[in-house]
Amino acid sequence: MRPPVPEVTGQPLTTAGQPQILVTGCPGCGCTHRHLAFGERRAPCGCKYIVTTPREDQP
C-alpha cells in the first residue's frame, strides 16, 4: 500500500509572464517551489504532493 500523498497550500504568484503557484515549505526538502497549476505535482527535489488553494477564513 502506498503512503498518502501530502497536501500543501499554494499561493498565487503574479509574474510578468503567466500566473504561477508558489509552494513554501516542501514536505520533502523544506524549500520553495513554483508550479503552473494546482493539483498533484512533483517538486524538483522529487517529492510528490497535492497543491491546494488557500482557504479563506469564514466569518
Rank of each mutant, 00 (worst) to 15 (best):
R2D: 11
R2G: 08
R2A: 15
P3I: 02
P3A: 09
V5A: 06
V5C: 10
P6Q: 10
P6V: 03
E7R: 10
V8N: 05
T9E: 14
T9D: 03
G10L: 04
G10V: 01
Q11I: 05
L13P: 00
T14A: 06
T14I: 04
A16V: 05
G17D: 12
Q20G: 03
L22I: 01
L22P: 03
G25C: 04
G25T: 05
C26Q: 13
P27K: 12
P27D: 12
P27W: 07
G28E: 08
G30W: 11
C31I: 00
C31G: 01
C31Q: 14
T32W: 08
R34E: 00
R34C: 03
H35G: 09
L36K: 14
L36G: 12
A37M: 07
G39H: 13
E40A: 14
R41M: 15
R41G: 10
R41K: 13
A43L: 13
C45H: 05
C45N: 03
G46T: 01
C47W: 04
I50N: 03
I50H: 07
I50S: 01
V51H: 10
V51P: 11
T52L: 15
T53D: 04
T53Q: 14
T53N: 06
P54C: 01
P54E: 13
R55I: 09
E56L: 11
E56Q: 11
P59G: 07
P59N: 04
P59S: 10
P59I: 02
